[in-house]
Amino acid sequence: MHKGRPREFDVDKALDKALHVFWQHGYEGASLSDLTEAMGISRPSLYAAFGNKEELFRRALDRYAEKGPGAIQSEALAEPTSRKVVEHLLHSVVMSLTDPCNPAGCLAVQGALTCSSAAESIKQELCKRRSEAEENLRCRFEKAKAEGDLGADSDPAALARYVSTVTQGMSVQASGGASRNELLAVAEMALKAWPA
């Protein structure tokens, strides 16, 4: 049985480069020419390795969630108290959003804001992933409530929505040029509002 020619590029490195293009330009703003140029591969190589642009974007999102800024939430959820969860999450999000090595803002937020109806499946995927992140927070706050870390009258779903809204708002602010210090001030304001 004849094997195909081995790939002449590192798939993970190419995926990292594609991730940055999508992060900077959004799904629709990233052209195939932008992607192949950044990845250092031809269109046939892109299709052979990743299928199509949509599949490449989904794989870039997975990479973002597993190894990039998206991994912040799983680290935060492991904190011992709900306040520590939120503190870790907000501060880490600010550091990620303002990291000079990355495009400003959040791929999952920016990507959905710039999708037209032609990319509805991508918009739905991004919305689903953001909803899952909010649901993870809600579950963690339910646990905190059951353990007495949050008051009996607290609303874990509303708290999760609040934290998600703050982080997504910080992403929009970062993409508009807000500084690290400005966003840290927002995080501190949100923490002051956290239930004692």
Rank of each mutant, 00 (worst) to 15 (best):
P44N: 04
P44W: 06
P44L: 06
S45Y: 06
L46P: 01
Y47N: 10
A48Y: 15
F50A: 00
F50C: 01
G51D: 03
N52H: 06
N52G: 09
N52L: 02
K53Q: 05
E54D: 08
F57S: 01
A60N: 05
L61S: 08
L61Y: 13
A65E: 12
A65H: 10
K67W: 07
K67C: 05
K67Y: 07
P69A: 12
I72R: 03
Q73A: 08
Q73E: 12
Q73F: 12
E75M: 12
E75L: 15
A76L: 04
P80A: 12
T81Y: 02
R83Q: 08
R83G: 15
K84P: 08
V86G: 04
E87T: 15
E87D: 15
H88Y: 03
L89Q: 07
L90N: 02
L90S: 01
L90Y: 02
L90I: 04
H91R: 13
H91G: 13
V93Y: 03
M95T: 10
M95F: 13
L97W: 00
T98V: 08
T98L: 08
T98S: 05
P100C: 06
A104N: 11
L107V: 15
G111Y: 05
G111C: 13
T114W: 07
C115T: 14
S116F: 04
S117M: 10
A119F: 00
S121C: 02
I122K: 02
K123I: 01
Q124F: 04
Q124Y: 01
Q124D: 10
E125Q: 05
E132A: 09
E134Y: 02
N136I: 00
N136K: 13
C139N: 09
R140Q: 05
R140P: 03
R140E: 02
R140I: 02
R140C: 02
E142A: 05
K145G: 03
K145D: 05
A146R: 13
A146K: 12
A146H: 10
E147H: 10
E147Q: 14
G148P: 05
D149C: 07
G151H: 09
G151Q: 08
A152N: 09
S154E: 15
D155C: 04
D155R: 03
A157T: 05
A158G: 03
